[in-house]
Each structure stands twice: as structure tokens, then as C-alpha cells.
Computed example of a mutant assay.
Amino acid sequence: MLKIGITGGIGAGKTIVCQMFQVLGIPVYDSDARAKWVMQHDATLKDNLTAAFGPDAYTLAGDLNRPYISGLVFNNPERLAQLNALVHPRVRIDFEQWAAAQTSAPYVLKEAALMYESQAWKQMDQIITVFAPLEVRMKRLLHRDAHRTEADIRAIISKQLDEEEKLARADHIIYNDDQQLIIPQVVALHQQFLSA
């Protein structure tokens, strides 16, 4: 089965593009949501996180202690790298199991903001990058995420792979720049993947 990765910077429009593929009947693996699920349910990962970050990594009820973990990794690149080194391999395993279960789908999509940073691209047959210029993304994000400042958004962007690099590495680009219609771009790629 064809495995298509979909990435793009924050505010580029990955979610809306994925929703369009879902309307066309294509299963989409949401890496962020699944990473949260895996951190909560994968026994091996829970043991590894507890060993790495201490007994406070999980609450007495067994739930991931997100504020505690966030506090440890926020502005600490070494601790963040340690967290990612534990979580990303378990998410890759989860994706493979999920993809194998999608037996009636012609292909699957994996949405991941950190497609390259997490090495998830290595599991994919092709990569789509959703692109929007920075000023368009900033406007969308300030409207969508009212709790975030422009400085907050720029800090998130600075931690993601450069847009030029994403574009250079992409097999396909969907332009979500408020100038071009995205539905025809999605439909054209869908037809291409069906005939692959």
C-alpha cells in the first residue's frame, strides 16, 4: 500500500488538506494525536519515559503528566531531543500497525508537522508539503490561536525545518496561499495516487 506523508509549517493548512483527502475516503494518521495516545497507552514507552524523566512523568492515576513533561523540555533542547528519541520510534511502530489495518484503502496519509525532524519521512513512499507564505500563516495563526502572540508563533516556527528545505524535499506541493484553489490540487494528487 502506498504511504503518503503530508507536512508543512504551522498554519500552512495541513489539517484542511487532510480533511479533503478524508472526504475522498482516504484514511489519515494524525501523528500529533497518535503520539499523545501512544504516550498514554504504550507500556514500553511509559516505562521509558518514567525512567528518563522520573516518577512524576505520570500521575498516580497513570495519566501522562503533560505540564511536568512540558516544563522539563520547554527551552531545553537536550531534554526535548531525549523525549523525541523515546516517542518518535514508538509512533513509527504505531503507524505501521495502523497502516497495515487499512486493508480497504488504496493508499494512506500520515500527517506530521515534524515529518523530517522525526525521521518519519523514511516510512513514506512520497511526501506532500502544504505551503503558505509566512505572512499568510502568521495572519491565520493569530486569528486561530488567540492565546498565542506573534513571538510565540515565531518561536514554534523556528523549531521547525525551514520551509525552503521542506519544499526542496517534497515530491508534491499543495499551495494554500489564498491565491490558488486547494480542492483541484488535492483531487489531482488523489487521481495520481490511485493510478500509481
Results as ranks from 00 to 15, higher is better:
K3M: 12
I6C: 13
T7N: 03
I10W: 01
G11D: 12
G13L: 08
G13D: 08
K14I: 06
I16C: 11
I16P: 01
I16E: 15
Q19T: 09
Q19C: 04
M20I: 06
Q22C: 09
V23N: 13
G25A: 05
V28T: 04
D32S: 00
D32H: 01
W37Y: 12
W37F: 13
M39C: 12
Q40K: 08
Q40S: 11
T44I: 10
T44M: 06
T44C: 07
D47E: 12
L49G: 00
G54M: 02
P55M: 09
P55G: 07
A61K: 06
D63N: 12
N65R: 02
Y68G: 03
I69R: 00
N76H: 15
P77T: 09
P77V: 07
P77L: 10
E78I: 06
R79I: 10
L80F: 12
L83H: 00
L83W: 03
A85V: 01
H88E: 00
R92N: 06
D94M: 04
F95I: 06
A99S: 13
A100M: 12
Q102H: 01
Q102G: 02
P106F: 11
Y107E: 03
Y107H: 10
A112W: 03
Y116I: 02
S118Q: 05
A120K: 02
A120W: 09
Q123D: 13
Q126H: 14
Q126N: 11
I127S: 02
I127D: 03
T129M: 05
T129A: 14
T129S: 13
V130Y: 09
A132I: 07
V136T: 14
R137K: 10
R137W: 08
R140K: 09
R140D: 07
L141F: 06
L142P: 04
H147I: 02
H147T: 13
T149L: 06
T149G: 09
A151I: 13
I157H: 14
K159Q: 15
L161D: 10
E163D: 15
A168L: 14
A170V: 11
I174K: 05
Q180P: 05
L181W: 10
I183S: 14
L189W: 12
